[in-house]
Design a protein around this nucleic acid. Structure first.
Lengths: 168, 168
DNA sequence: TATTGTTATACTCTATAACTATA
DNA sequence: TATAGTTATAGAGTATAACAATA
């Protein structure tokens, strides 16, 4: 095997341009990826999630918890299964979520009197207070999103909903 | 403490309606949650992701891998760090991702000759073929999304991009 | 000193399957 | 038989921090 051939070896011609101070390689092109709705959806959701989590981080409540609390507020005495359907999560994912919220004292769980298999969920007073605070935070968060969406917001949200409803 | 009082006890009036066959409780209302862009973003992304993964599941390439392959195709000889920036992931997340793609024989990694810290990434022929197949799948997937978005697609995507760019 | 990539590690979120207790 | 909830378990995806090699 021949040693690596040095192409264009020998004295180099003097550079015509500046000393070529280590040009940082151009950032990658996203190319065709940019045209895919799916890809953009991922980036946007990711960005939104990070910001929400970072800002509400002190309260240590992630978007998923927030959504659950909201559903509980608007649907007192809902069961775990129904909650799972509302937030699109399996019941086995709902259990630890609620255990966490209960441990924090935000949710009360009681056996349903009419169907003893079911658990009846309600916000505690503390839960309502925390949620109130989170709503302020979420509004602030969404205000920024609203700004970005501009006058097309309604249509934008409508499309998101259609995607959520019709894709699966 | 008095025993539970049975309100309306005694003989019940005959039902006027049908035997009230265990009415399934009404599905929960999403309430104010429906107004939040963030929440809808999450549901939409989730739905889109699931469908993409399910359909491309045979190929066992998730959206994240697909995005990485696309970036590699459009940016031959990119480094791992640059890839990470493109897909918005930390370098420590990029390493195992690429190890996986390499193990599958889809990507070739070589030490850069000009900066021996860096790794230079290229798609293999097999990688290009798999990607080609995935692109067809992604197009099909996105075709459905396009349909849902309708004529507002351009504006919809523009908003998603602005969210991804301006939220963080 | 700063950056590239790797590793060790840990955490979150999620689901499937098997189980129980009811219905 | 079917459903509500729990548990055991596993897997994907991610990040932080510390590190070695190199710039």
């Amino acid at each position: 095997m021949p040693a690596t051939v040095k192409v264009e070896s020998g004295k180099r011609p003097r550079r015509e341009t500046a000393p070529a101070r280590r040009v940082p390689p151009p950032e990658p092109k996203l190319g065709a990826l940019q045209g895919f709705i799916g890809f953009n959806l991922r980036l946007a959701q990711d960005a939104s999630f990070r910001v929400f989590a970072r800002k509400s981080g002190q309260r240590d409540i992630m978007p998923g918890r927030f959504a659950a609390l909201m559903v509980l507020r608007d649907n007192p005495n809902i069961t775990q299964s129904a909650l799972g359907r509302a937030i699109a999560r399996d019941k086995s994912s709902v259990t630890p979520l609620l255990q966490d919220l209960q441990r924090r004292g935000l949710v009360k769980r009681m056996r349903s009197t009419t169907d003893r298999r079911s658990v009846t969920l309600t916000l505690t007073a503390a839960g309502a207070r925390v949620l109130q605070d989170l709503i302020l935070h979420a509004r602030e968060h969404d205000r920024k999103l609203d700004e970005i969406a501009g006058p097309s917001k309604a249509e934008f949200v409508a499309i998101l909903r259609r995607i959520a409803d019709h894709m699966v």
